[in-house]
Design a binder for these strands. Structure first.
Length: 229
DNA sequence: GCGACAG
DNA sequence: ATCTTGTCGC
């Protein structure tokens, strides 16, 4: 699919409209959030377009040693390239298909990528949250936009991230000697609570458990699929 | 004008 | 995001 400047402008307007539906207040208190889902996406071949996207959602009970409650996958052929600030247009379609397969109703979703740490507050976690009206949080592994200082090299230290002079999220050191992750609200949650929720989901590794497991299951799924062909 | 730019 | 084993360092 070829993207011209007109389409980009149209999508920008769409993001701005969607951002008006954002709710950055806590829909639930932290104590009410027990089932947390992690969402991740991979591709069979990232160089070709169209290509097959595979998505996984893992639901964990964070009050029961991150016990796995449900795991679902979905595949979908996608034909939209990766363009910074428009990630949702590439990955959201598969994610929504996966989301439809869930039998359980998680209290919140951790999406890999940004929430409101985005030029128009419409990172993929926010886009997902607005479309589904779920509680969502963005957890990204690298910077998209924003001004911040590096947190100290100590587990759980963090620094604020500002975009347009506004506090949009935090850079968080989830593990010592590992690069920090970028945490921001997707939808239906505040900046402060999104940080606290992610901290509650961190175990021994850099990535919060829901996201980490979704990622691991995807790698397994992907290589088994490729072995067959 | 130039560099930066989630996955 | 993916191709890939061992290896160096905290």
């Amino acid at each position: 699919m070829y993207i011209d400047e007109n389409l980009i402008e149209k999508l920008k307007k769409e993001q701005i409209n969607l951002s008006k539906k954002l709710k950055l207040k806590d829909k639930k208190t932290l104590d009410e959030i027990k089932l947390v889902a992690g969402i991740d996406t991979t591709f069979t071949n990232i160089w070709e377009n169209p290509t097959t996207a595979i998505s996984c959602i893992v639901v964990l009970d964070i009050e029961d040693n991150f016990k796995e409650v449900e795991i679902v996958f979905a595949e979908k052929i996608i034909d939209f390239p990766y363009i910074p600030t428009f990630l949702a247009y590439r990955e959201l379609p598969v994610i929504l298909e996966t989301y439809k397969k869930l039998k359980t109703k998680p209290d919140a979703f951790l999406v890999d990528g940004m929430g409101i740490i985005h030029p128009r507050k419409m990172g993929i976690a926010s886009h997902f949250g607005v479309v589904t009206d779920e509680i969502s949080v963005g957890v990204g592994k690298s910077k998209l936009v924003g001004k911040f200082e590096m947190p100290e090299n100590k587990k759980f230290s963090y620094k604020p991230v500002y975009v347009d002079g506004e506090l949009r999220g935090y850079v968080v050191r989830t593990k010592k000697n590992a690069n920090p992750v970028f945490v921001s609200p997707g939808n239906n949650i505040s900046v402060e609570s999104s940080l606290k929720l992610v901290l509650k989901c961190v175990d021994k590794y850099k990535l919060p458990e829901p996201t980490r497991r979704a990622h691991n299951y995807l790698q397994k799924y992907r290589r088994e699929k490729i072995d067959k062909n």
